[in-house]
């Protein structure tokens, strides 16, 4: 049913990072980049979110949190890893408590590289995520009709 791509609500979680990417994500919502013009809302609530933005690597402490956030999000949903840390573990990769990038814990769909990732590339990543979100939503509707469910 319909175009959901006009209303992607993002949820942002900052894992084990230097907070550089964290700040760049917030910069996307400022007047210069104004992500809200695409209908993007930065919601804090996983139960109402569509796109999960992860910044920073995953460590033993935040792994459970990330898992839980992901599970609380209703389908269809998309995960975006932002910054080198979230993609691979980045500069913290060798640290004793770092498990690696976001994909060690949840299935990541889109990787946005950069240290820190620039707002332009973050918005680019989100736009790609929105396209994927629409595709998943269409599949979700089909499943609802046929009663079958696949992953996603």
């Amino acid at each position: 049913m319909g175009k959901v791509k006009k209303s992607p609500w993002v949820l942002h979680y900052d894992g084990a990072s230097c907070n550089g990417c964290d700040i760049e994500v917030l910069a996307c919502l400022t007047p210069v980049y104004d992500a809200e013009r695409f209908g993007i809302v930065n919601t804090g609530d996983p139960m109402q979110a569509d796109i999960l933005l992860l910044t920073g690597g995953i460590n033993a402490q935040c792994q459970e949190v990330v898992k839980q956030i992901y599970e609380q999000m209703p389908r269809p949903k998309v995960v975006v890893a932002i910054g080198t840390c979230a993609c691979t573990g980045g500069v913290f990769k060798e640290a004793y408590n770092i498990l690696g990038g976001a994909d060690t814990t949840v299935p990541v769909d889109i990787y946005v590289p950069g240290c820190a990732a620039r707002p332009q590339s973050i918005i680019d990543g989100i736009v790609k995520a929105v396209a994927l979100f629409q595709q998943r939503s269409d599949e979700h509707d089909k499943e609802k009709k046929t009663g079958r469910r696949e992953e996603g």
Partner: peptide, 14 residues
């Protein structure tokens, strides 16, 4: 657009 999308999502009730 927001409301239409919200209705389209999976139902999760606590």
């Amino acid at each position: 657009y927001d409301v239409r999308k919200l209705f389209n999502k999976q139902t999760i009730v606590v």
